[in-house]
């Protein structure tokens, strides 16, 4: 197993990698280039690559344990927005047990596993990509690049926001572009962990809850594996 954190600030991923004391290659993709090259649009997602370096399953939702939030009773009296978030999270399809079993089958049986797909199927099942999605990738990359390299701090922030807004508009189904940008503006300064609520803010048009609902709700939030 190889994990790759789509985090433009490596330090944000380091604390989790170190806490987990991982023994597998634990990589960081600071530019979200793996979105572009493998078709990731959310996390967690995974691709399967065989011994010859060929993809045998395209990017799809890759939970291997059911989220405890799924079966948790929503406490009464939560703030309205948090209550609605929980309700959408509970709608996210749970394929964890089946996906885990599929991985184990592939590990045991390799190309003979029924979950190992032929090349045409891998390509056909990979994420759709038209000009808007491709342009969004270019915009995200420009924003990330300028956030590091523009001459002044003000310019760095402004350029990133300008290009990331455009990336969000062009490819609303790409959640790594959106969640990455939102968390940078909704996480309080000095916080030890990134904000996961990613609520309404003054910088970007969208936010997690309203965008999930606009995209069809929690049931449409992930790329469900076709097993």
């Amino acid at each position: 197993m190889v994990t790759v954190a789509l985090d433009i600030e490596p330090a944000h991923a380091h604390q989790w990698i170190d806490a987990a004391m991982l023994t597998h290659p634990s990589l960081i993709d600071t530019t979200h280039v793996t979105d572009e090259l493998f078709g990731f649009v959310n996390i967690p997602m995974a691709v399967w690559i065989d011994e010859q370096g060929s993809i045998v399953r395209p990017a799809e939702s890759a939970s291997i344990e059911s989220s405890p939030l799924r079966d948790m009773e929503i406490p009464a009296g939560l703030p309205e927005r948090l209550d609605r978030m929980f309700r959408e999270i509970k709608k996210i399809p749970d394929c964890a047990a089946d996906y885990r079993a599929a991985i184990e089958d592939w590990v045991a049986n390799g190309a003979d596993s029924r979950f190992s797909l032929d090349p045409d199927e891998v390509i056909a099942r990979s994420q759709p990509r038209g000009l808007d999605e491709s342009r969004a990738a270019a915009c995200f990359e420009l924003g990330e690049h300028l956030r590091r390299t523009a001459p002044t701090e003000v310019e760095r922030g402004a350029a990133a926001v300008m290009w990331w807004r455009e990336a969000h508009r062009l490819h609303p189904a790409n959640w790594t572009y959106k969640r990455q940008a939102w968390t940078l503006v909704t996480t309080p300064a000095g916080a030890s962990e990134n904000d996961l609520m990613q609520g309404p803010n003054d910088v970007y048009v969208g936010n997690w809850l309203d965008d999930v609902i606009a995209g069809g709700g929690g049931g449409a939030y992930t790329v469900t594996p076709q097993l």
């Binding site: 960081i28 891998v122 390509i123």
Partner: peptide, 29 residues
């Protein structure tokens, strides 16, 4: 900033054009 960004290929209409896995340089811990 006098920069250009080139987006990924759309020739096949899918995110993957070939099953040959891409090999980007990623950052280790």
């Amino acid at each position: 900033h006098r920069l250009w960004a080139v987006g990924p290929a759309t020739a096949t209409g899918r995110a993957i054009s070939t099953v040959v896995a891409a090999d980007p340089e990623l950052l280790a811990r």
